[in-house]
């Protein structure tokens, strides 16, 4: 560790560039705040359940985001909704990335698998995903676990496509052939030589897949396929739609909608900033 001063490592350079971009740091701060709300939900507001006395009240000092038609506090709903929305988004995205990474790398490394897997990825990407997710979620029955699995099941092809094209550029490089020549097993070469090359691309994909998963969760919950025992941003909108307060009580829809927008804009800007920072040419 004596040679650090002369030439900063690429990782360090990316971090330095990222830190100088206010859009990137601002988005990261928003995401950290949302994650904190999700983790600390029980400390911020009581779990919204049962019936309250103040029904359909607009925002006030006592109820920051107003109350819904059965008197529950919308602020508490949004806080607890943050928890489920982010949890489902992150779990589904991790699952999708693991599947996408394995399929993408396998397609690029094993020649024989490339055609069938490539066709599978292309076919999956050309289908309208939401109606398919609706069908499967309705069949499997509503629960948080169903949401995670269903969203992951139909989100991995996007990751696999990105990983495959990146891995296809690495496989013909001499160091991979060298690893093969010295007798390395396929799993060893993939783990030690292919993964390090594709991980940076996956880094961007993690945030984007998460935000897409959050949107998918909101869409399914909005249609009534969410977990009936827990709150998510989409579920708040679904209840507003079912009770008819969608059009009259603007506060029941504005705040969850704003939360979704905040998360998705922050993840998009974060990935833009990360890409700019990593791409040393554009700086």
């Amino acid at each position: 560790m004596t040679l650090t001063a002369a030439e900063p490592t690429p990782r360090r350079r990316t971090w330095e560039a990222f830190r100088r971009n206010p859009l990137g740091t601002g988005s990261a701060a928003v995401l950290i705040l949302l994650i904190l709300v999700a983790v600390c939900a029980p400390l911020i507001a009581p779990f919204p359940e049962g019936y309250g006395t103040d029904t359909s009240q607009p925002p006030s000092g006592a109820h920051w985001f107003g109350t819904d038609d059965i008197g529950q506090d919308v602020f508490a709903q949004v806080v607890w909704g943050t928890r489920v929305s982010i949890m489902v988004g992150v779990s589904a995205s991790i699952l999708a990335i693991v599947i996408g990474l394995l399929v993408g790398v396998a397609a690029a490394y094993f020649r024989r698998l490339d055609t069938p897997l490539g066709v599978l990825i292309d076919l999956s990407l050309s289908l309208p995903v939401l109606p398919l997710m609706i069908l499967v979620a309705a069949l499997a029955g509503p629960s948080v676990r169903t949401l995670v699995v269903v969203i992951a099941l139909f989100s991995w092809p996007e990751v696999a496509r990105v990983v495959r094209s990146q891995a296809l550029a690495i496989v013909p490089l001499p160091y991979v052939s060298a690893a093969r020549v010295v007798g390395g097993s396929a799993t060893w070469i993939i783990r030690k030589h292919l993964f390090p090359g594709v991980i940076p691309v996956v880094g961007v994909s993690v945030v984007l897949t998460t935000s897409r998963a959050v949107l998918a969760e909101a869409g399914l919950s909005f249609l009534g396929l969410g977990d009936p025992n827990s709150w998510s941003w989409g579920a708040i909108l679904h209840k507003a739609q079912m009770s008819g307060s969608l059009a009259s009580a603007w506060w029941t829809t504005l705040f969850p909608s704003f939360a979704i927008l905040l998360l998705v804009v922050a993840t998009t800007l974060l990935s833009v900033a990360y890409n700019d920072a990593r791409n040393h040419r554009t700086r």
Partner: peptide, 22 residues
């Protein structure tokens, strides 16, 4: 453009419905 891409469809729908419909 980036913001519009991040919008949740029902949110936009409800917003337009509330402002221009109600």
């Amino acid at each position: 453009g980036i913001t519009a891409q991040s919008l949740f469809v029902p949110s936009v729908g409800v917003f337009l419905l509330y402002v221009f419909g109600v």
